[in-house]
Design a binder for these strands. Structure first.
Lengths: 247, 247
DNA sequence: CGAAGTATTGACTTGTTTCAATGTTAGTGG
DNA sequence: CCACTAACATTGAAACAAGTCAATACTTCG
């Protein structure tokens, strides 16, 4: 069978078992979750700051960003989410959204109700722990962003960002020869890194000139992951991925 | 009786019940936790990046910061923690520390083992949920920092930071007439906000000149919380505190 | 083809850093 | 109680990274 939500079930299971083994019983619990699938078009804000959602959203394909806006409409991108991520997992315990969720390109999303997630967590502490840990890795990503945007200059900041994106795609098996699809415009990368398009453009030229990356519209190829990571002072510890991915 | 750890028990209970009521049974569970008290002197790093701690740390008095360093030794302060906070709560599910913990002034800290925390979480999902929520508020604080450091200029950044510190002290009952003890030097505030001492000093002068705050060595008085928050585009939503504190 | 979004480039401006000197405050020990 | 010291705050001037403005090219797509 190939029922609605199987993609979501598989992605979630892969993700949760990336750190600890998931028992047969827990797997059955998780398989019992029912998912609603939605396709969203590009540049759609589907959760707003201030909302009180009753579901969480799992990214199946495409990229979702979390964002906050200044009074005069400038956007700060708080985090970038790729398939397997649950960008609003915190809404499970924090009622009110402190940021919005927007698609970048077209996305396929899977929604699961808070109540059913609470049910599986209540039924098994090891499931609760696995999901809890996901929400903590999210915090670790935030800390990496604070460090990166606070202490690195433009070139290094971009190197750090690309290193992170590369590693996360690598773990997913979505990078071949260092290359992965990446639909964020330079403008949006600037909004994530606290820089303008112009600075991103010039930083990108630096990284290209050093032979570290190739960046084309919609995709990035990392030519020298080690040097790129060193240049961006990127420490993958915080991603808490298995050692096999850390070259 | 006044056994070791009672301060910690009371602080934790107050904190956890700030959002949802804690049942009698849950309270008994939490009261069963055993705490180890330690006094730390000023400027002591007591947990290092890379450590694999087996306990969490509750701040009883004083201020603790979480920090990461660049290769050339510059410090980025990731977050500032006041009494009632558990700065390394994420270590409960993330084995390896991606940052260090340091005292600012002298601190009294209470330590509780991961295993005993897991026990109370396993025993009661409502306790697990309350502690989980604390770890998510931590993430919300991180997002506020990313927004603040990424999109606000120096003056507004400092206003945002002071607004946050003021509100958190207010909730604790540690602010009178808008004034609270705050031992961070301007240098350290710079390390938190991604600015230099000089910029902080000048930003402080702006806020003083506008009649928003008084800052003296070791203490801050907020004269006009509303205007200060507006100037710093500070939205207290993310702290998820009760409405009674939001003027 | 035209239009919209995106990338690139150059010239100029500005906020912040850097450097360096001078006050100021708190704590220490004679 | 004062001299001494270290930490912290304040100030000014010069240097610089990044922002702003604006024009030009390149892509993608209806």
């Amino acid at each position: 069978m190939n029922s609605v939500g199987d993609e979501a079930r598989e992605l979630l299971l892969t993700r949760l078992s990336a750190v600890d083994e998931i028992s047969e019983a827990d797997r059955n619990l998780l398989d019992g979750l029912s998912w609603r699938i939605e396709e969203k078009s590009a540049r759609t804000q589907f959760v707003d700051e201030g909302d009180r959602p009753s579901e969480c959203c799992l990214v199946i394909s495409g990229i979702v960003v979390r964002s906050r806006y200044t009074q005069d409409g400038q956007r700060q991108i708080l985090s970038v989410h790729i398939p397997g991520d649950i960008p609003d997992l915190q809404s499970l315990h924090l009622k009110r959204m402190d940021h919005g969720l927007e698609t970048v390109g077209p996305c396929r999303l899977a929604f699961v109700s808070h109540s059913s997630l609470h049910d599986v967590c209540r039924a098994s502490y090891s499931v609760a722990a696995a999901i809890w840990r996901e929400s903590l890795i999210d915090g670790a990503l935030h800390r990496a962003a604070i460090f990166r945007n606070g202490r690195l200059e433009a070139d290094a900041r971009l190197a750090h960002f690309i290193s992170e994106m590369y590693l996360r795609h690598l773990v997913l098996g979505m990078a071949t020869d260092g290359a992965f699809q990446f639909p964020l415009s330079q403008e949006m990368m600037g909004e994530a890194l606290g820089l303008t398009v112009v600075s991103i453009n010039r930083a990108a030229q630096t990284l290209r000139a050093r032979g570290l990356v190739r960046m084309e519209r919609g995709s990035i190829q990392v030519l020298d992951p080690g040097t790129l990571a060193a240049f961006g002072q990127f420490d993958p510890t915080f991603l808490h991925v298995r050692d096999e991915f850390l070259g």
